[in-house]
Amino acid sequence: MNEANIKSAIKTHILNEFLPGEAPASLTDTTELATTGILDSISTLKLVAFLESHFSITIEAHEARVENLNTLSDITALVLSKLGPQ
């Protein structure tokens, strides 16, 4: 799985779960998710659960902080770091 595929899967999930009905173009790589309330504490936990099952990775509690999950780029980077070299 390459970076573009990973990002696209995460983006689709965020759009479907947390921004239903939103135009995909509105959610960019740098749209702030936590500081705007798009991801709140519950939805962050749900997103982490999705990332863990979808990519078969484990995210530690300290890594699930909003700083690591504030943008699509941040989330993709976190997942990539977990998947390791392909």
Partner: peptide, 18 residues
Amino acid sequence: SMVEMKTFCAARLPLYMV
């Protein structure tokens, strides 16, 4: 846009009110 509106609200309201 939902993203635009959330960003707009987050600048004016506490997050729990967005």
